[in-house]
């Protein structure tokens, strides 16, 4: 049984990260922008797991675990902020949330 080379995983990770950046800049809905951040974190996790496999070390997997924990708490706090913004401004469009903009 042949094995898929690590480079394939890294290329997929790079593509997903690039798509995440494009989504982050293109999308105007604040919730979708949060989802783009989650997509980028997922791409980084894939690279971590691939490198952990390439070097036969477990540290990469432990880091993925911590990334998932931090992503969970970030999503909880971030979505609470989104709800607060929506209660105050009645919009989810980031172009209309521009009080701090000079």
């Amino acid at each position: 049984m042949s094995i898929v080379p690590i480079s394939y995983y890294l290329v997929l990770s790079a593509i997903l990260f690039g798509l995440g950046i494009i989504a982050f800049v293109f999308k105007r809905n604040i919730i979708t922008i949060f989802m783009a951040i989650e997509l980028m974190l997922n791409a980084v996790n894939l690279a971590f797991v691939a490198f952990a496999r390439a070097h036969n070390q477990l540290d990469g997997l432990v880091f993925v675990f911590f990334v998932i924990v931090v992503a969970a708490s970030e999503a909880a706090v971030g979505l609470a902020i989104v709800i607060t913004v929506y209660q105050n401004r009645q919009t989810l469009n980031i172009d209309r949330i521009n009080l701090l903009k000079f």
Binding site: R28, N93, D95, R96
Partner: peptide
């Protein structure tokens, strides 16, 4: 929040082209 269809505002044309260029450059 009953988030419906995303409205397209064209305040920042720069962000569109910068995002595309940035993503392609990163790849």
């Amino acid at each position: 929040l009953n988030a419906g269809v995303e409205e397209r505002t064209d305040y920042s044309q720069l962000a569109k082209y910068a995002g595309l260029a940035l993503g392609i450059f990163l790849l």
